[in-house]
């Protein structure tokens, strides 16, 4: 379980996150939704160690991760898939995957890689091709696959739907849900596309201007008329 306690992040004079607390239980998908500039990406980048918080902590299974280096947090089992299909286009599919768990033993890596190929068969077919020859959906799968290569206990997905066809988004998110439940991974999903996100999520967190407005079961939030109008804009 990933637990976030009163996390506060300032960009100079601008407060991006104010006192954010939330929990991401293992085996579940928790969706953070909110409008542009709500602080969603900042939350993800802070959890991954790319941004230092001004106050508050985040801990994974009781171990504090805030204040550590991004590479150490990754090795502790928190894998972020940043916004915009973060693969290394100059490397092949297989090299991108290898990258995800470079510090692990060869046997462990081979086993995880097989799991990833089982989950995303298209990556197995394209393993020797360069990442920049893949389609958008394939690259998103590769980015998630790369994150899975470190055998994460917590997966952070930042806007996976960005620029993808709705059908593909649904497919990928269904896979992510299956993954969370079957491998007992805590998944934190950040989405602007609230409808899609809440459809697969167990819990929903509404973020507005850096503060948590509401936490509750995904269904409940999806059907909350006022909330939708006020913060989600539909």
């Amino acid at each position: 379980m990933l637990a976030v306690e009163s996390l506060t992040v300032d960009y100079g004079p601008v407060r991006a996150l104010a006192n954010v607390s939330l929990q991401v239980p293992a085996g579940e998908v928790t969706a953070v939704i909110g409008a542009n500039g709500a602080g969603k990406s900042t939350l993800m980048r802070t959890l991954a160690g790319l941004v230092r918080p001004n106050a508050g902590t985040a801990s994974l299974e009781g171990q504090v991760i805030t204040g550590r280096k991004a590479e150490d947090i990754a090795r502790m089992g928190v894998a972020l898939v940043p916004e915009g299909r973060s693969t290394v286009p100059e490397l092949t599919v297989e090299e991108n995957l290898r990258l995800g768990g470079l510090w692990r033993s060869r046997a462990e890596r081979a086993a995880t890689q097989q799991e990833v190929f089982d989950l995303f068969p298209i990556l197995g077919e394209r393993r020797t091709m360069r990442a920049d020859t893949l389609s958008g959906g394939e690259r998103q799968q590769l980015a998630i696959g790369r994150a899975l290569m470190c055998d994460p206990t917590c997966l952070l997905l930042d806007e996976p739907s960005l620029g993808l066809a709705p059908l593909i988004v649904t497919q990928i998110l269904e896979l992510v849900k299956k993954l969370a439940e079957e491998s007992n991974i805590a998944v934190l999903l950040v989405e602007q596309n609230a409808v899609t996100a809440l459809r697969v999520a167990h819990t929903g967190v509404v973020l507005n201007l850096g503060t948590v407005v509401m936490v509750g079961p995904a269904q409940e939030i999806a059907s909350h008329e006022e909330l939708r109008h006020a913060y989600l804009g539909y």
Partner: peptide, 8 residues
């Protein structure tokens, strides 16, 4: 100085 973001 201002150009340096929060990223470390």
């Amino acid at each position: 100085d201002a150009g340096v973001g929060k990223d470390d």
